[in-house]
Every structure is written in structure tokens, then in C-alpha cells.
């Protein structure tokens, strides 16, 4: 299995993502600059956290229109897996691969802390390392993590089992406490919390590791 991390100007969790993936994969993971236009060699594409383009206009808006994103969209449309974390989630929403949008946190403050999350749907390639209903702790670090969709879309994503993670104590005002959401086909996941920051006891815990182990296992099967 071959994986890559897309890098935009002002991505800042790209190396964390690379290390987390390499730990589970046991082989090198490539960094792909946003001006590249070929993803044909990759099984898994990931979009890391950060503040791409300084969050200009809207978070993720500029990155979603960069050259590599046309390839990410094609990759996703082929049914291949795409994972976006934090800014990566914002980019996936802006690119139309995921429903909804991430707005300014309801209390307007940047939040940087550990939060408890309930694994809502463990029957996905991304969450198979957990069990449904399991509560895990991941860090969050964002100013714009307030997930929003219109009522009709919300009903559809709830009905289709597209909610992957929910906050136990909603920190940012997200509708229905949604912390991570899948596309309808289940091959694209976006989430605000950072599993890639908790894959080593030295960093304070390993709650994020089953995500990457499970993902590698699912894709190898």
C-alpha cells in the first residue's frame, strides 16, 4: 500500500501525518506538493491540518482550488480513500467531496485541548480499529471547527451512517455534535480532531494509533 500527504503552503501537521502513517504502514510515505498533478501511484491520499493560505477568504477555500485537488477529487470518485484532518477536513468540504462547511467556533475562541469523542460508526475503513460507541480522546486545535449543514443534508448524513465521530462535550457548536463525517460512499473521511498527534506514549497517549492501524489493515485486506 502506498500513501501520501498533500502539502499546501502553511500546512503544519503534514509531518505528524507522515509519521503516524509510516508507524502503521511500516514503509515510507510521500509528501506531495499542492502544485503536483499526478496521484496515480497512491492508494491512500491524506490532507493534513494547518492554516493553508493563511485561511484567506474561508478556511480551505484556496487550497480546495489548487491543482492537486482536481486529482484528489478524481481519486475519491474512483472510490479510493481520502482522509482529511482539521484543515484537511475544511479543504474536503470546500472541494465538495464532503457535505457541509466548517464555520467559526460558536464562542469565537481558538480551542486547543484534548476532547472526548464517541466513535459513532466503526464499520468504515477509517474506524475499524475501534468499536462503535467506544470513547477516545484526541486533541483539537482549531478556530473554525463548527460543522454546519442545512437540515435536509443533516438528515441524509445521519440516515446514511455518515457520522464517524461525535463530540461527547461539544467544544465548538458543531451541529449534532459532529466531529467527523464521511461521504456517502464511505471512502472519504474528514474530522477536526487530530488522531495523528496521539500515536506514541511520548506524546501523551496512543488513542489515535488504532485509526491508522485499522486503516492500513482495511486497505491491505
Amino acid at each position: 500500500m502506498k500513501a501520501c500527504v498533500i502539502v499546501f503552503p502553511a500546512s503544519n501537521c503534514d509531518r505528524d501525518m507522515k509519521v503516524a502513517l509510516e508507524r502503521s504502514l511500516g514503509s515510507p510515505v510521500d509528501m506531495v506538493w499542492h502544485r503536483e498533478t499526478d496521484l496515480s501511484g497512491y492508494d491512500l491520499v491524506t490532507i493534513p491540518g494547518g492554516f493553508s493560505y493563511g485561511d484567506y477568504l474561508r478556511c480551505g477555500a484556496m487550497a480546495a482550488r489548487s491543482p492537486i485537488m482536481a486529482e484528489v477529487v478524481k481519486h475519491a470518485q474512483r472510490g479510493a480513500p481520502v482522509l482529511g484532518i482539521c484543515n484537511g477536513f475544511q479543504v474536503l468540504c470546500e472541494s465538495g467531496l464532503l457535505p457541509g462547511v466548517l464555520m467559526r467556533n460558536a464562542h469565537l475562541k481558538f480551542i486547543c485541548k484534548d476532547v472526548s469523542l464517541k466513535v459513532e460508526n466503526a464499520n468504515t475503513i477509517f474506524t475499524s480499529g475501534y468499536s462503535s460507541g467506544e470513547v477516545v480522546t484526541y486533541p483539537v486545535a482549531h478556530h473554525d471547527g463548527n460543522y454546519f449543514t442545512d437540515a435536509e443534508t443533516l438528515k441524509a448524513i445521519e440516515g446514511n451512517g455518515q457520522v464517524a465521530f461525535r463530540y461527547v462535550n461539544n467544544p465548538n457548536g458543531s451541529i449534532n455534535d459532529i466531529a467527523g463525517v464521511l461521504n456517502k460512499a464511505g471512502n472519504v473521511l474528514g474530522m477536526m480532531p487530530h488522531p495523528e498527534r496521539l500515536v506514541d506514549p511520548l506524546l501523551g497517549g496512543i488513542d489515535g494509533k488504532p485509526m491508522f492501524d485499522g486503516l492500513v489493515k482495511s486497505l491491505a485486506a
Partner: peptide
């Protein structure tokens, strides 16, 4: 439609 506004919100 393509960039300046996000018509979801």
C-alpha cells in the same frame, strides 16, 4: 459560485 462564496452558507 466557484470561489468567492460558499453557497452552503
Amino acid at each position: 459560485k466557484k470561489l468567492l462564496a460558499n453557497t452552503v452558507i
